[in-house]
Design a protein around this nucleic acid. Structure first.
Lengths: 214, 214
DNA sequence: ACGTTTTTGTGATTTTAATCACATTTAAAA
DNA sequence: TTTTAAATGTGATTAAAATCACAAAAACGT
């Protein structure tokens, strides 16, 4: 693949920051300002843009509107993307209740769960039984799904999603999912992220103790 | 810092997989098996261990118990870590309701919110008003906090957490938090992760279309 | 109009991370 | 025992990502 995950993450972040700057009434921005806001160097910003054929004005910086336009098309923001959430536990419910995605062109359109008690078709975002996933996904041309079921069920539910022709999965289960090459899987391991924080807090503490005693 | 975020993430994953293998009754494991399970090469596994002074037996692989023992101490799993969640919205509530962290030595002990209506001290995990954070954190020697408030409030709540002497923050707000050097911040940008999936699904689609037409 | 300053754009360089490949060791088989 | 096959451990190599550094362009002040 020409681009990697990391650069796309930065693009998402650039976009986020640019929207805020635009909201504040600014119309142009310099690479160093954007870099600071996102936590990268100005050279990184310029290189990212340059590699994607986005150019600014020497001494004039970049037009925010132009950048947003380019980023919109790079990130596929020119159309609304419909997403389903599979697994309506604590996390799944939180995700379908969160309303912040909408304004970013991401629309969560339905939830699915294996537990009939969770089914509720009258919600703002309806929740269906998992058995209906296949039909729903076909009929509504859904490509993206969030997987938020317990680890033990994750792989089999993933298989169901893949069979239903979902092409991209954001996975919250703490396992490495196996799926065909053409299915994009991005995993968020929340426990691992917490462990990471804990590790580095410990590491810092040890370092400081040593500093003090030396 | 000697080690970076990525290697620690791998260690977390190794540990996770090893626990599962151990549960299945296995007592030794080879680098290639562990690598496959986590999605890295066998050389990567061996190098990771080697760099941390963990060694196995030539031709005999690694003793799972030994590995887990080492990883436990590297990852600070030898004691239980108490964590507070600040911001009891959809996501914060999901996190304090999730019971899976406990068995991993991570214990969410309290929630905090600025909204008095969210306060409930009789829950399994009590929710206090944000004003009580400082006192609670001091009295209970909390070092780690999860930040799950709206973007607009994130920086100021972060400041409160830092003032309360929290040393590590897992941040779910879509902004780059500013904090002193000695405070560890790890951000999970859920929207960005979803956008990433969407981007690569689009990219694949375009690639395939091109393939078909050529 | 002209020089000065500032910012971009990018080739060269450095740094970092991953992979290779093989000598070494050792468990198991013959 | 002796041989054979299979893993580890690690220096060397490669690949990837980030940074540097500076020429080129253009806005601004005078």
């Amino acid at each position: 693949m020409l681009v990697n995950k990391k650069i796309i993450s930065r693009f998402s972040q650039y976009r986020e920051v640019l929207l805020k700057f635009q909201e504040m009434g600014l119309s142009k921005i310099f690479s160093n300002v954007l870099g600071d806001a996102v936590g990268v160097t100005s050279a990184q910003v310029r290189k990212d843009f340059s590699l994607h054929g986005i150019s600014g004005n020497k001494r004039g910086g970049y037009q925010i509107e132009d950048l947003l336009h380019e980023l919109r098309s790079i990130l596929g923001k020119d159309k609304v993307h419909h997403v389903v959430v599979v697994g309506i536990g604590n996390l799944g419910r939180a995700l379908i209740q969160y309303t912040g995605f909408d304004k970013e062109g991401i629309q969560i359109v339905a939830g699915f769960d294996i537990d009939p008690a969770k089914v509720n078709k009258r919600n703002r975002i309806p929740v269906y039984h998992l058995d209906e996933l296949n039909k729903y996904v076909c009929e509504n041309q859904i490509q993206i799904g969030v997987l938020a079921v317990p680890d033990a069920a994750a792989q089999s539910v993933c298989n169901i999603m893949v069979d239903s022709d979902i092409k991209g999965i954001l996975n919250f289960a703490q396992i490495r999912l196996i799926a065909p090459e053409d299915v994009v899987i991005n995993s968020v391991f929340l426990q691992m992220e917490l462990e990471n924080v804990i590790y580095f807090v410990n590491a810092m503490e040890n370092k400081c103790t040593r500093c003090r005693s030396s």
